[in-house]
């Protein structure tokens, strides 16, 4: 097990990198998608809804396989879409968890009391300013628990990247087992690492929620 440590450590770092990139990407996708979902323009709303429902309701593993194996087979542009495994996996996670974020933020916007929009309108604020200064800040505070859960989901879903050969913590563990065969211990150790990280993320989000509540 000692010998496995360096490879596992490298895998853990990769897990953290993928999780960070994935979380950031998913937030951007979520914010853009939610903005389009409530836009005045019908085509924008339809496109955003289609994207959200498609990527939210299909398994992330299938999405990752599609991006890595099926995209390059598209006649014509296929070869240009041959992605490195890490990239394909991270994009897959961003699309899936991003689509979930769109739904969370949209629900959050809806949960902001109607009187807030009335008051902002009555003051003459433009629609953009209403969203930016009054509605979205409140929507994010309301959505914080759900957003936090999604971040934790994404972190746990990073294990899926190992299915296309990426050597994240889980991939490294499997690779080690193929070489040294100490599976039960290894899985327990790896499991504990994930549990601790999830626990820390959970505590972080609970603290954020407390802070957001004070400001209200």
């Amino acid at each position: 097990m000692r010998d496995a440590a360096p490879q596992l450590a490298r895998g853990f770092v990769l897990t953290l990198e993928i999780a960070a990139a994935g979380t950031a990407g998913a937030l951007v996708v979520g914010a853009l998608g939610a903005a389009l979902r409530v836009s005045q323009s019908r085509p924008a709303r339809v496109a955003a809804t289609a994207f959200t429902e498609l990527f939210r309701n299909t398994p992330p593993l299938v999405q990752i396989y599609f991006l890595f194996f099926a995209l390059p087979e598209i006649p014509g542009i296929g070869p240009a879409l041959r992605l490195p495994s890490v990239v394909a996996a991270t994009i897959g996670l961003i699309l899936h968890q991003g689509a979930i974020n769109v739904e969370i933020l949209r629900a959050g916007l809806e949960a902001v009391p109607a009187g807030q929009r009335e008051a902002a309108s009555a003051l003459g604020l433009s629609r953009f300013d209403q969203l930016r200064y009054v509605l979205v800040p409140q929507a994010v505070r309301i959505s914080l628990p759900a957003l936090g859960n999604n971040v934790i989901s994404l972190f746990k879903n990073t294990v899926l990247v190992s299915s296309i050969g990426v050597l994240d913590l889980f991939g490294a563990a499997n690779d080690t087992i193929a070489q040294i065969l100490v599976s039960a211990e290894l899985f327990i150790t790896v499991g504990i690492v994930y549990l601790v990280c999830v626990g820390l993320l959970g505590a972080l989000f609970r603290a954020l929620e407390k802070r957001a509540a004070l400001a209200r």
């Binding site: 746990k156 499997n174 087992i177 599976s183 994930y194």
Partner: peptide
């Protein structure tokens, strides 16, 4: 808190051990 895949692997590969 534990990733589902880790749990599945543990039950399938690890338990027999």
């Amino acid at each position: 808190g534990i990733p589902l895949l880790v749990l599945m692997y543990f039950l399938f590969f690890g338990l027999p051990q």
